[in-house]
Design a protein around this nucleic acid. Sequence first.
DNA 1: AAAAATACGTCAGTTATGTTGACTTATATT
DNA 2: AATATAAGTCAACATAACTGACGTATTTTT
Lengths: 157, 157
Amino acid sequence: MQETEPRFDLIELLFFAYRDFTDDPDVLLNKLGYGRAHHRVLHFVHRNPGIRVSDLLGILKITKQSLGRVLKQLVDEDYIEQQHGPLDRRERLLFTTAKGKLLAQELSQLQTKRINKTIDLMPTGSDEIIRQFLYLMIDEKDRSDVVRLITKSTTKE
Amino acid sequence: MQETEPRFDLIELLFFAYRDFTDDPDVLLNKLGYGRAHHRVLHFVHRNPGIRVSDLLGILKITKQSLGRVLKQLVDEDYIEQQHGPLDRRERLLFTTAKGKLLAQELSQLQTKRINKTIDLMPTGSDEIIRQFLYLMIDEKDRSDVVRLITKSTTKE
DNA sequence: AAAAATACGTCAGTTATGTTGACTTATATT
DNA sequence: AATATAAGTCAACATAACTGACGTATTTTT
């Protein structure tokens, strides 16, 4: 059996980089009594206004029950609102409220700052290499879904 | 207030890439009844043979009680063994057993395969850019600690 | 029109992983 | 001898995930 030399450098850098990357939002979220689960839900609703519950489940890859708990809190506290689907009334389409948009922006600002500080220190063209690396690290079967998500609405307002 | 344009592309790529990156080991670990916490402990003990409990706590940034629970299982099931410190007998230095080394290797093989498959598809020199990016994403205060960890023992055997 | 499928929600119980706080034991340092 | 340190332990709790079963509204199929 051929043993590939382990890439401990990248394995460990990914671990530490991701930990600090998620820590900035976590600090703000904890002040509001929210966790990372709320962040993910708010983020993807913000980025995909009118997303259906079942599509959100598909993105997050969690169960309906898990989503239900955090979604209920976000709706109760007026960060997210639900509307019946115009064609199919069974659907509950999800939107961020003004309050929700603001929080989502604050959270993405924190992460954007860390990213921009980093990119600014690197050679021109690095960001394209990094995007490509992260893209190729995703399971092949999921890549087209991710591209569709990322290239979507720039959420201008 | 100046609004920086949010980097949704990198924010979301990081989310999906990290999810799939950790999913490979998770599948194997679940078969053994272990979770991600066990993985982290096993990994850092494997990479730092003879590490003290308190230093491991510093790396993982969890409490003694949390570590205690998973560490006890790994010791009981013969993946990790403890030895008294030769100079200070209060210390319990941690080592992987043969069984533990094997599992740690299998887990890092899975992650290494994903990394190498990715790097192979990219232009020469990309890995240095990626390393730099991940390094600079880490909190400045922690970078020297991380470098010390990463450049350590290549765990040859 | 009736039956089946779908979208969503909910109740109840479980697991994994983290937390605080208080205390113990062994050993080293002052 | 007194104090500090390294590690472990007991108890209680929080969060975020899980499974399984079931209910309700609505749409689609037969």
